[in-house]
């Protein structure tokens, strides 16, 4: 039996909103030691989502037997929208479940809402992702990255990211013209989440699809900062840290044809 109780529904609501436009169906893997993990790849095989919610993400967590819960994320999102962000949220499943029970509780108002979501058999490929060596790692305010990704998408379907030891430059080259945004590395000791940190082994110049970057920044409400790890001619990793877990995106780059 699985029983995972979140102190607030907001984490799960934000996580599902962050991934449901990239993948329609996914398997939730549940185990006593790892909590809930997800690996899902978008249909074009360009973007991979890796979610980890450790048992410490939950107020209470038990999972007597490893479970795989196949979910339609649009349906899950419909149900999660029924609860308030500050409600308690509990996920419950039997050992051989054909449905997932989702319970919201507002202890102040004595309101309990219960929903049952039908599960599906989902046959999906799983990719092995080794801990990558990277040429550079950038940590910046998640909102600043979201603004660049959204703004530059209006100019071009590709966004070039160039990193040196003291700045990150985003460049778009489109039919109406070109644009660039430079963010300089800075340490804000009063408000560390406003810092822009660059850890550089080697300068990087990579290009990504603007559409995918705009899917990634849907995770912005989950964390104050995002860490981007880049390596020449390899997929980039974008990480939003959660309390006791993470939401990561791996994005394949574009290359000169």
């Amino acid at each position: 039996m699985l029983e995972g109780k979140f102190e607030t529904a907001s984490t799960m609501k934000k996580v599902i909103e962050a991934i449901k436009d990239s993948v329609k169906l996914c398997n939730l893997n549940c185990s006593q030691n790892d909590g809930i993990t997800v690996q899902a790849i978008d249909d074009s095989r360009v973007l991979l989502i890796a979610l980890k919610l450790d048992p410490s993400c939950f107020q209470e967590f038990r999972c007597d037997k490893d479970l795989v819960l196949g979910l339609d994320l649009e349906s899950l999102s419909k149900i999660l929208r029924q609860g308030n962000p500050e409600d308690y949220l509990t996920l419950i499943a039997e050992d051989s479940p054909d449905s997932l029970l989702i319970v919201f509780e507002d202890s102040k108002k004595d309101r309990i809402s219960e929903f049952s979501l039908k599960l599906m058999d989902i046959d999906s490929d799983v990719l092995t992702i080794d801990e990558m060596e990277h040429d550079c790692a950038i940590t910046l305010p998640a909102a600043a990255f979201a603004k660049v990704a959204r703004d530059m998408k209006t100019l071009s379907e590709s966004l070039q990211i160039l990193v040196t030891k003291d700045s990150v430059k985003f460049k778009a080259d489109g039919s109406i013209g070109t644009g660039s945004v430079i963010l300089r590395a800075r340490t804000n000791l009063d408000d560390t989440k406003e810092s822009i940190l660059i850890d550089l082994n080697k300068p990087v110049n990579l290009t990504f699809g603007a559409k995918y970057l705009n899917d990634i920044v849907k995770a912005t409400p989950l964390a104050d900062t995002v860490t981007i790890k880049l390596t020449d001619k390899a997929p980039a990793m974008f990480e939003y840290k959660l309390q006791g877990g993470f939401l990561r995106y791996y994005l394949a780059p574009k290359f000169e044809d």
Partner: peptide, 14 residues
């Protein structure tokens, strides 16, 4: 002209 690469050319199936 830029061409989009695929994740499956970097990561192997588990």
């Amino acid at each position: 002209k830029m061409k989009q690469s695929s994740l499956t050319s970097f990561f192997t199936k588990a």
